[in-house]
């Protein structure tokens, strides 16, 4: 009786020491979870999630203050990735926060623009150029399509135009074949 208790105690102590040492020795200095979440988010900075940008939303997710299905630009794929990262169940996109739209960029109608600079102040990525009383232009490459510049514009001169498919950004499509039902099912 006593020996078996001693053995168990001894084993427990030994394993405890091994675990303790290895947890110190093999400590993984990973990215803090907020950065990992942030790197999945699309960085549109649109605020549709209810937070003032992607980083705040990432922080909120990490703290459990927000759900993973509040980001329309990230779409289904983004939710799947977040679910994978955090080890939680996938949820469909919460419709309260809007619906995914095709990727677009803002275009200013240069004739109508009065140069009020309000859109410049609203742009989260400083993608609008211009100064007071001068016509503004959007740097197309930098525009994330967040639509934050639309409400402040007093003359409604900003339009969202979806990015069209052209020979440059065109890509090969997923092959579709009729017959192969058995393997199609496995994929989905």
């Amino acid at each position: 009786m006593l020996t078996s208790i001693l053995i168990v105690i001894f084993l427990a102590a030994l394993i405890g020491i091994i675990l303790g040492i290895s947890s110190i020795k093999f400590k993984v200095e990973g990215d803090p979870i907020i950065d990992k979440i942030d790197s999945i988010l699309p960085q549109t900075q649109c605020g549709q999630c209810g937070f003032p940008g992607c980083k705040p939303y990432a922080t909120a997710i990490a703290n459990g203050a927000a759900d993973i299905n509040q980001c329309p630009p990230g779409g289904d794929e983004g939710i799947h990735k977040l679910a994978d990262l955090l080890g939680v169940e996938y949820k469909p996109l919460n419709a309260e926060h809007g619906e995914p739209k095709p990727k677009s960029v803002a275009v200013i109608d240069e004739k109508t623009c009065i140069g009020c600079t309000l859109c410049i102040q609203a742009c989260p990525v400083d993608a609008i150029l211009g100064s007071a009383k001068h016509m503004h232009t959007i740097i197309e490459k930098e525009c994330t399509g967040c639509e934050l510049c639309l409400p402040p514009c007093p003359v409604d001169c900003i339009d969202m135009t979806p990015i069209e498919e052209n020979a440059e950004n065109w890509k090969w499509k997923y092959p579709v074949y009729k017959i192969d039902k058995s393997s199609e099912r496995r994929v989905s």
Partner: peptide
């Protein structure tokens, strides 16, 4: 592109 947007956003803040 997301990285660029993040940088620009951080810069702006």
């Amino acid at each position: 592109q997301a990285n660029i947007a993040r940088e620009r956003n951080e810069f702006r803040i």
